[in-house]
Amino acid sequence: MGTQLRPLLDAIEINHGPRIELGRYFLQLAEEARKLGISLHMGRGSDRLNEVNKRNQDTWKPLSPVYDPDVSGINEETAIYVEGQYDGDPVVTLILRRYDWPQSTLREEWESGRFAYRDPATQMQSDERWIAETPMAAEISGRVVFVGGLWSHPAFRRKRLPVLTIALMRSISLAVWGPDFSIGMIETGPMTRALLPLYGYPPMQPGMKIVGGWRTFESNLIWETPEMMTNHILNNLTGTNQPDQRNRTDEGIRRARAPR
């Protein structure tokens, strides 16, 4: 079954973090998207992400095996997909994948191949290596949310969408899963310096590499703790809610069941 999308404000679950402020923040982000003509939708799993990626190969590289349910452990319980639509068509995407590593670390999971593959011994190519030289990779453990799958249609790439999508990643990660760490990868290269301000200058270290297999590249690891995410949200929350927004907070943002 493919990803079932619902309007973001109907689908979002606030399980963690400052509930009132997060509710206001989701309204704020939905309004910012609306001003661009974009409606935000959310679903579980990675099927829709892969579908949109395949339809837009002219402007988007093939996705990592991290998002492939045929080889990865990704499923509806561990992935949240967000799509921005313009006139019903996808123009922006992002995905959050949850990992639970109570007895392991990012370095162990990355270098073993388990970060991407359900069974690395049979699914990795013979010359494929995942290398984690980043010092912080040995410290990241527990509940970890990996954020990625970022794409926007060329017609929307100068409309501050990166700021909006990064704010969505941060707030959804905190609200739904309350992770010990939220992490992302910025590919090493000339765009690193330009992208870092859009992420709000999180801590960053180089040294996450993939050689062979899906694609050879090197990236910088960025990470945030719940405290960092909360501070970003509170610092970027604007104004006092209008009366209609207070009503929508009650009606449109559902408190969740027990965290999953």
Rank of each mutant, 00 (worst) to 15 (best):
E76N: 12
G113C: 11
K61T: 02
T3G: 04
M185S: 11
R248N: 07
L237M: 12
L234N: 03
Q125R: 07
K61W: 01
N50E: 14
G213I: 07
N75Y: 02
D100Y: 06
L196N: 02
M204R: 14
E133C: 04
D70S: 11
I183K: 12
E13F: 06
R118W: 10
P206V: 11
N235P: 04
Y199S: 00
V92A: 15
G45W: 14
F26P: 08
G149D: 14
S39I: 09
A30Q: 11
F217A: 02
I131H: 03
G200V: 03
S173H: 06
D47N: 07
P202D: 04
P190L: 11
G178A: 12
I253T: 03
D100R: 11
I253R: 00
E13S: 13
G178Y: 07
W223F: 13
T165F: 09
E77R: 11
N75Q: 05
M208H: 05
E111L: 02
N53H: 07
H41E: 14
P69T: 12
G149Y: 13
S152M: 15
S72E: 04
S64K: 08
S39A: 13
R157S: 13
E187Q: 14
G17F: 10
I12R: 02
Y81H: 05
G2P: 10
R157I: 14
R107Q: 09
E251F: 14
A137M: 00
L168Q: 13
T238F: 07
G84R: 06
D119Y: 10
V211C: 02
G252K: 07
R143Q: 13
A79S: 10
S72Q: 05
